[in-house]
């Protein structure tokens, strides 16, 4: 009986894994398919990879995505970290108000955030393009930075900052020399989170970008809608490998940190 239950558990897990990985396996396999068909195998070929790298729109979209993700993550980390420090020092009522506003983009459906920003940009007359994209990405990134930094601030000794002031620090140098080192892990987590959210975002980018300025996601959408596009398989295969390597590196790093912390 026990062995039967164990076998069932294994079989169930295997089924779920099959379900989760089937499309990824299919895409990686078909990225090497010489035939354009989605159903039949026409021999091994690298032509979709060559087509992908020759696709000027995809390459430009990749450039845009990286530019926006890096810039938005950097600015969001600076503004968000400062915000967390300030909010933490606020009295209860204003703190509650600001935190609730911060939760809005997190809780709202992406589509609502997207259209609300579109309305803002159109009403104020900010042209839809790189700038509007950057502003939109910062808007949904900052709350996640605040939420990553906040727990570290709560753990920190409240009087460290005051002590630094008493010992003659200016407020700025007290923040940089005393507060910042304490909350650094939260800041780094927030920055990584912001960067990945930016790379991954489709819905908000879709509403706040203008003609000719695509991110990788919006470009994928417009290509996929047009039908069979085997170079998208090649793109998936590459992205999968990149994500896999990144996650393994992050996991090894964090488990090292944990071990150091437990020592």
């Amino acid at each position: 009986m026990k062995r039967f239950v164990k076998g069932m558990k294994g079989a169930y897990s295997a089924l779920i894994f099959l379900f989760l990985y089937a499309p990824i396996a299919v895409m990686i396999t078909f990225s090497f398919n010489a035939s354009k068909s989605r159903g039949t195998w026409g021999g091994f070929s690298l032509k979709w990879y060559i087509e992908l790298f020759g696709d000027a729109r995809i390459m430009q979209a990749l450039g845009n995505t990286l530019f926006i993700a890096i810039t938005a993550a950097l600015l969001a980390t600076i503004i968000g970290t400062a915000a967390a420090i300030g909010i933490n020092a606020m009295r209860r009522v204003p703190q509650g108000i600001v935190m609730n506003v911060s939760y809005l983009p997190v809780l709202n459906a992406d589509i609502v955030t997207g259209v609300s920003l579109l309305i803002l940009f159109v009403s104020v007359g900010i042209p839809l393009g790189r700038i509007s994209l950057l502003l939109a990405h910062m808007t949904f990134n900052i709350p996640y930075v605040i939420l990553s930094v906040m727990p570290k601030l709560k753990q920190m000794n409240k009087h460290a900052y005051e002590a630094a002031l008493d010992l003659g620090c200016t407020p700025l140098s007290a923040i940089v020399k005393v507060v910042l080192p304490e909350i650094m892990p939260g800041v780094v987590t927030g920055a990584i989170l912001a960067f990945t959210l930016s790379i991954d975002d489709f819905v908000i980018s879709f509403f706040t970008t203008g003609a000719g300025v695509g991110t990788l996601s919006t470009e994928i959408y417009s290509q996929v809608r047009r039908g069979v596009k085997p170079s998208m398989n090649a793109l998936s295969a590459i992205m999968f490998v990149v994500v896999l390597i990144l996650l393994i590196v992050i996991n090894i790093r964090s488990s090292k940190d944990n071990r150091q912390a437990s020592k």
Partner: peptide, 30 residues
């Protein structure tokens, strides 16, 4: 970790993959 991994793939590409599988001329029907 293996559960989280597919979530990191682009949402649109994952959905596109199912088009490849489920279409009339796709793998499943073939």
């Amino acid at each position: 970790f293996l559960f989280v991994l597919p979530m990191w793939m682009n949402f649109l590409l994952r959905t596109y993959a199912w088009m490849t599988i489920l279409e009339n001329t796709g793998i499943l029907n073939t």
